[in-house]
Design a protein around this nucleic acid. Structure first.
Lengths: 158, 158
DNA sequence: ACACCTTCGTTCGAATTTGAACAACAGGAG
DNA sequence: CTCCTGTTGTTCAAATTCGAACGAAGGTGT
């Protein structure tokens, strides 16, 4: 019988899932990072910032909101937005309704950089992940990991 | 008809799978990192080093081999092994058959640290990922991401 | 108006990561 | 043996990341 002091270790299947997840994640990050840097001079983080801004109304988001979407620290975002600002891809604009607030805003040049970087990035994501999996596998992955993410986000608020 | 110049963007399902994967990965890393650091004073990377050494014959592995298992750079591993050496959890031993070679070797103290850190870590992995998914979802995840990882590893060799 | 608690974004120092360059060595072809 | 190519682990500088501390506002209750 299971002891309360003895933890429930992962069985073979569980371990395979966990290791596969970690390995795929690390390997994918490595590849995408390299490709983006060589192809567009952008880091994956920077690319994601452009993507999220691009998908937001007026191409702008509050710093805190953007940090949450990116799942990164506020200080980390401050750093990266500064970098993107120097590259001319993003601008800062103060918030009318809140003096403390800062909007990160996509510039025309930023939109253009994203338009230029996106095809290569998407193609690689497709080649390395999406097209390797079947439609059913993708669906299971979306639902399962969606649920995992949702729970983690809730926990973080608490 | 699809143009050769126009990339195949991700449809809704594909995007959901991709975003879920990235989000789950980042959120999980954040959580595990925090838990391990608070609970055992180890980073996730350091913990993984101990795990891989623990699962190797004589509790030791060549630096390059270990770096590949961890999916990290050689220089990064050098740094972390040095840290673990200072903590007394890992030792370095030169390789008999190859003067250049270096074995990273788990010390008794390292084994003890792992034994102490593992239960909490595994429990959290279980709570946040494994136990959230059904048996079928786990199987799909293991097989799908296993295949993805395998292909990525092959590509890296080339 | 006042005190109180929260939120916002930045700054700071410390830790980590990476790729390139490097020196030393291994292994094979000639 | 000797040259050549590939490997091994480390060092180095640069970039990035995080958490804690911070100053400045917001917002609420009294």
């Amino acid at each position: 019988m299971p002891s309360l002091n003895e933890p429930r270790w992962l069985d073979q299947d569980e371990m395979a899932a966990w290791r596969g997840f970690v390995a795929a994640s690390n390997l994918l990050n490595r590849r995408l990072e390299r490709q983006l840097k060589e192809d567009s001079g952008l880091s994956h983080t920077q690319y994601e910032i452009l993507v999220h801004l691009s998908g937001a109304p007026a191409g702008s988001l509050r710093m805190t909101e953007l940090a949450e979407k990116l799942i990164t620290s506020k200080s980390g975002l401050t750093y990266q937005v500064t970098q993107l600002e120097r590259m001319g891809l993003v601008g800062r604009r103060s918030c009318p309704s809140d003096v403390r607030g800062v909007f990160a805003e996509l510039t025309d040049q930023g939109r253009e950089a994203l338009r230029q970087a996106a095809p290569g990035h998407v193609a690689l994501v497709r080649e390395l992940l999406i097209d390797v999996l079947s439609r059913e596998q993708l669906a299971v992955l979306a639902e399962g990991l969606g649920e995992v993410s949702a729970r983690l986000r809730l926990d973080d608020r608490a």
